[in-house]
Design a protein around this nucleic acid. Structure first.
Lengths: 349, 349
DNA sequence: AACGTTACCGGCAACGTTACCGGCAGCGTT
DNA sequence: AACGCTGCCGGTAACGTTGCCGGTAACGTT
């Protein structure tokens, strides 16, 4: 009975195998799940038929009865270098643990983040890994889920007032490392390109910035702290503005590499010597940074590890019978020093 | 009956609503699907209760009966800049069309590509969008699916002998543009960093390269065509090798930007003047290229459009009753000329 | 001869949802 | 008074799979 017509593809089911072999679907199911209580010959026949019909178990039906999809939802604001690598980390651990990741991009939009969560909930993903969008000021949609004990792990961009498991960088320490380094290089008027004010990374890194200045007895000047969009062009114009002031800074610490690149473009255009006149440090250590001229210093973090541990925590939480207490894992950054902030070159040689 | 214990989260079902309201599940279903034959008051009550219980339709159950998951599987070799943007294009159209994308990375590994496809088939995704890994020499797993009329669209990296719908760049034209440009700039000994020989993009771009040389009557020298891994360090050492030869090239055309960057690093290290001694053109026009010193010329393609059209074609194919004929869509590249290949600077000013 | 054990297999409910059919009032028409 | 229509609603099978229970034949034990 060759029914391989021009039809839209009908995958073989356990029933097909049973019918073809004149056994019950229970028996087929037993074979396919490697259960006992089945004759060796029957087992063999079923396995052969499964192979022949190219049988693939229907995860959908299985999910309906087990209430587990073995899928985890991921919502990231974008897929820039950092998040791409983080997603790879998630994917990596998910594969090991037998899960598949559904990756959605919120495109930094609150509305899209909502749609994404809703879609993922409809698909009954077993848990969520989220880095919130820069446009998200209201996190009620996540709070509702958390209240129902739905497993969610936030990473990198976490809501400040969310009681949940989180994986993040020690942003205070990272900023402190950058600013300390700049001070050691002789900088005294260090500007901070802060990014969007609502994000916790901006706030945390601001704390590291101010703490360090205080520690070294350097006055904190409000006008050296510049908020902006997460956008290179924005950083570019902010930097031009900084440079046009009578009392220009002698260093710039950018909350992200994207902003650091914008700053560098402005500096180069104005023919400002880097690092002699203005030193520069970014954040994330994207591969691009070492390729720029001059190579730009940056605070490095392992996005891969962050993604992996986020997935790890989520899967632990999901496989646990009881609701586990919320945890916060903090990863340590490292500072990569490059030409853009190394004034005392004699030291290194 | 407050059963909101410390339990693993049980989403409300249509049954819960029915029980709470003492109506049948049929009626609830009718309301939720906006069907007629239901009293206005009943309708109102059901909607309120759905809201109150935070009801989300169970896509899993729905998929089981409709045999459509409204999910499309995506397999990409990695999530570098090009594929990130392509995935965004896919995601973008999928969202519009009411689909969600399941994105898997093969990590350029054949084994992982197999596992990914299998997982996606088990999850009964409605269709597949694939860019094959550089490690994949055997595409039988895709051929089997295509024979069963399972909808697959390949993009960018397509298997050469696969009868399927494809979206790709006019790679021949792209390479021809690059090489023509280099010739017009006075280059005569143009090396080609070709990447892995099994990929069709390498082959196609080779055709554009040789065709153009032939057209201008420039002899094709085998030793100027260098195959390598898709790896920056590899390109770096290949370039060093090229430079060490007695008869060094006066231009390098790289099959991808990643390789072009490797080449640039080698050129800079050897203090070779770019473009005066050796001109350089890459492929993909990653944002990084305009930030390098010198800014590197590159053949630009819209990864976003490619992703979008791939998704478009797939969804068309999936929603069609009959099996549509395979199509091949070719997108046109554009050449972005920058300092790395502009020798005749007087011309432009 | 009655009983227990073992090896093997099939039937059935359930998961959440929709499609289809049937039923019952209440009303108007002949 | 019989009929048909309309508005509203409930019951049930089906999707593919698993878990549980029950059944039967063959064999050994007392």
């Amino acid at each position: 009975m060759a029914l391989a017509g021009n039809r839209p593809h009908r995958p073989a089911t356990i029933k097909d195998i049973a019918r073809e072999l004149n056994v019950s679907i229970s028996t087929v199911s037993r074979v396919l799940r490697d259960m006992p209580d089945v004759n060796a010959e029957t087992r063999q026949a079923v396995l052969q038929m499964a192979e022949k019909l190219d049988y693939q178990p229907n995860q959908v039906a299985l999910s309906l009865v087990t209430k587990r999809t073995h899928t985890l939802g991921v919502i990231v604001p974008n897929l820039d270098h950092f998040f791409s690598v983080a997603v790879r980390g998630i994917d990596d651990l998910a594969l090991e643990a037998g899960y598949t990741a559904m990756i959605c991009q919120s495109n930094e939009s609150y509305a899209r983040e909502m749609v994404n969560t809703q879609r993922l909930m409809k698909s009954r993903v077993d848990g969520l890994i989220v880095s919130i969008s820069s446009d998200t000021f209201n996190v009620d949609h996540f709070k509702r889920l958390l209240q129902k004990n739905y497993p969610i792990v936030f990473f990198d961009r976490v809501g400040s007032d969310l009681a949940a498991t989180k994986v993040l960088l020690d942003n205070v320490a990272g900023a402190a490392m950058a600013v300390t380094h700049l001070i050691e290089q002789g900088c005294r008027r260090i500007a901070y390109l802060a990014g969007p004010a609502n994000l916790s990374i901006s706030q945390q890194r601001l704390i590291g910035y101010t703490d360090t200045l205080r520690k070294y007895g350097i006055p904190i000047e409000e006008e050296l702290i510049v908020y902006s969009e997460f956008d290179r062009d924005y950083a570019y114009s902010c930097t031009l503005d900084l440079l046009s002031r009578p009392n220009r800074p002698d260093a710039i610490f950018a909350v992200s590499d994207r902003l650091a690149v914008g700053a560098l473009l402005a500096l180069k255009e104005k023919n400002v010597q880097v690092p002699e006149e203005v030193a520069l440090v970014g954040f994330n250590d994207e591969p691009l940074m070492r390729l720029l001229t001059p190579a730009v210093s940056s605070v490095a973090q392992s996005a891969f590890d962050m993604g992996r541990t986020a997935a790890q925590l989520l899967i632990e939480q999901m496989s646990s019978e009881t609701t586990l207490p919320h945890r916060t894992v903090m990863l340590k950054p490292t500072l990569i020093k490059r030409d853009s902030s190394l004034r005392k070159k004699t030291e290194t040689t």
